[in-house]
Computed example of a mutant assay.
Amino acid sequence: MRRLATLMAAPILALMLTAAEPPAPPDRPLSDAAQEARAQALFKDVRCVVCQHEAIADSPAGVAGDMRRLIREEIAGGATDQAVRDDLVRRFGDYVLFTPPVRAGTWLLWFGPFALVLLAGGVLAMRARRHPAQAVAPLSPDEERRLDEVLRNEKLRRDPDATSPHDGR
């Protein structure tokens, strides 16, 4: 029975081992130093679609290697930086850029935090207006007389647990 389970598990294990993403092919820098500098600058502005928190300049993912190669090909073909960005956005969406453009689809991303702060401030202001601070009623003459009597008769004594830097202990 154990052999049968091992024989059935072996193909599944082999499939799992081969399903891992292959390593990215090594990068081939552009021969023109100015074009390679443009490509490197773009690599830092483009988000890896697999890692999502890394720029493709730092990502070891195969997709990031493909994106670097694509950017280099477009730059070598004479595309401007903006044309390369537009092509990446067309392929992968606005999320691929660390600083997406400001347009109707990204308003929430750009202005959402400010809107939340304004909304929270508005809610706090409305709650403060609805529940104004209640004024404390002054003491009646009878209450003032009793308070004076208690204060005169109360012998102030020192708390034995309290300490002061001036105690000299």
Rank of each mutant, 00 (worst) to 15 (best):
M1W: 05
R2H: 13
A5N: 12
M8S: 08
A9F: 14
P11E: 08
P11S: 03
I12W: 01
L13Q: 05
A14Y: 12
M16I: 12
M16L: 09
T18W: 13
A24I: 04
P25A: 11
P26A: 08
P26W: 01
D32A: 06
A33N: 08
A34H: 02
Q35P: 06
Q35F: 05
Q35L: 03
Q35C: 08
E36Q: 15
A37S: 11
A37Q: 11
A39L: 09
Q40M: 14
L42Q: 03
F43H: 00
K44C: 04
D45P: 07
V46K: 00
V46N: 09
R47T: 00
V49S: 09
V50G: 06
H53S: 15
E54L: 09
S59G: 06
G62V: 12
A64S: 10
G65M: 02
M67W: 13
I71R: 01
E74G: 14
E74I: 11
G77R: 06
T80L: 06
Q82N: 12
A83I: 10
A83W: 11
R85I: 10
D86E: 07
L88G: 00
R91L: 11
R91F: 06
R91A: 05
G93Y: 03
V96A: 02
F98W: 04
T99M: 14
T99F: 14
T99E: 10
P101T: 04
R103K: 13
A104S: 14
G105V: 10
L108F: 14
F111W: 12
P113D: 04
F114W: 13
L118N: 03
A120K: 00
L124S: 06
L124F: 15
L124Q: 07
A125G: 10
A128W: 07
R129Y: 09
P132M: 01
P132W: 06
Q134T: 06
A135N: 07
V136H: 06
V136Q: 07
L139P: 05
L139A: 01
S140P: 06
P141H: 04
P141D: 03
D148M: 00
K155D: 13
L156N: 08
L156G: 14
D159C: 09
D159S: 02
P160K: 08
A162G: 09
G168R: 03
R169P: 07
